[in-house]
Simulated assay, not measured.
Amino acid sequence: MIAFPEPRPTRPIWLVTLADLALLLVGCFALIEATRHQDRAALVAGLRQGFGGAPDTTRSRPQDPPMPLAAAMATFAPGSARPDGASGDLRAWARTAAADPRVVLTVTGSVDGSATDVDPATRSAAVLAADRARAVAALIAPAAPRLSIAIADAPGRRTAMVTLAFAGEPVRRP
């Protein structure tokens, strides 16, 4: 009969795995905390280089905001989010403007700042400005696939302005 040596007492294998996972989690939190106030593009470039990846040559500097070139607007009655008048003209203008893939349309809703130009349900000027921007965006969305919405911070006119901006050539990734 063969006698095997008595096994020595050891730690369970799951304890080693748990310790590894805990150290990875602590390392992840340390990385997040250390990079919280850094430039995101520089961090991504550093991580990519650290793992042996090729540098990203598609962006050499942070993206500039698009340059505004033209604008059209829809007007509204006080307290209303339904555009007055020529919505067909605005839709046709948006269709023509959005035909160029290098442009972006931005809809900015605003209020006139008076006590009567607020959302009837919430009594909020910001909600009315957002509703105006949303209504015009819904009107021109089928004609303009590249569309963003903004709300004017300062009181101005009872409008939703559609701004055409040159965003540059589309980036083609290999």
Rank of each mutant, 00 (worst) to 15 (best):
V111G: 02
D112T: 09
D112P: 08
G113P: 05
S114L: 12
A115K: 15
A115R: 15
A115L: 15
A115N: 09
T116G: 11
T116R: 15
V118Q: 11
D119R: 15
D119L: 09
P120E: 13
T122G: 12
R123H: 15
A126I: 05
V127L: 07
L128K: 09
A129W: 01
A129D: 04
A129G: 06
A130P: 01
A130R: 11
A130L: 11
A130D: 13
D131F: 01
R132M: 05
R132A: 00
R132N: 03
A133Q: 01
A133V: 03
R134N: 10
R134M: 03
R134Y: 03
R134A: 10
A135G: 08
A135K: 07
A135L: 08
A135R: 10
A135P: 03
A137K: 00
A138Q: 14
A138C: 07
L139S: 02
L139M: 14
I140W: 06
I140P: 00
A141V: 07
A143W: 09
A144D: 11
A144R: 03
A144P: 10
P145W: 14
P145F: 12
P145I: 13
P145C: 09
R146Q: 12
R146D: 15
L147G: 08
S148T: 15
S148R: 15
S148P: 00
I149A: 02
I149Q: 09
A150G: 02
I151A: 03
A152W: 01
D153L: 10
A154Y: 06
P155K: 14
G156C: 07
G156W: 01
R157G: 00
R157D: 02
R157M: 06
R157V: 00
R158K: 05
R158L: 10
T159Q: 10
T159G: 00
A160T: 04
A160M: 03
A160E: 01
A160Q: 03
A160N: 04
M161C: 08
M161H: 04
V162E: 00
V162Y: 03
V162F: 01
